[in-house]
Design a protein around this nucleic acid. Sequence first.
DNA 1: CTTCAGATGCTCT
DNA 2: GAGCATCTGAAGA
Length: 205
Amino acid sequence: MQYRLGTEFFDRDTVSVARDLLGRYLVRMQAGRPLIGQITETEAYIGRCDKACHAYGYRRTPRTETLFAPPGTVYIYLIYGMYHCLNLVTEPEGEPAAVLIRGIRPVYNFDMIAENRFHCKWDELTKAQRAHISDGPGKLCRALDLTRAQNGASLLGDELFVCSCLPSQNLPAEDTEGRIQTGKRIGIDYAQEAVHFPWRFWLTF
DNA sequence: CTTCAGATGCTCT
DNA sequence: GAGCATCTGAAGA
């Protein structure tokens, strides 16, 4: 397990963490088996200075409490009444900030991922269903069966974690050099000047 | 390919 | 009560 990303990885500047998470492997243990996706899209949210962040200006409410937890904590909230969003808490404890995981590419245990999303086997999916099975924050949470039950969990625990490579699953470290795109974040039209911050990152294939 | 409406319930004012 | 870090299916270009 020495390839797992630990506290020192997340205890850094949030924008750097968001960029460096691209190409890494998100591992979700379900029924004793690993569901694995490669991270393809992320966004940074920083409470100190970012009006798009739930904890803007260090705002503390029951929901934002998780953002003040130690780096490497899982922050999951419900959006639009029916979808969940997965975030990984960054920066030193007490600095409310996190990286939103916006997209993953399934790389292991395709059948369980297809079952979670469409209640069928991977072979039975259409080409379009496969291409878009986990390319959004709500979709990937459904694909990996992530809900608020995991809010507050630690990435040092056994139910959800991130690895740089997984030799046992034949998944090598990905070289992201020259393949990282940058742009504005999605769905934060209310956030005034923060609308323009280039804090969305994605990997091209 | 694009736009568009509707679903649905929690969170904070 | 208003708004939300979204997704889906239907309809049109």
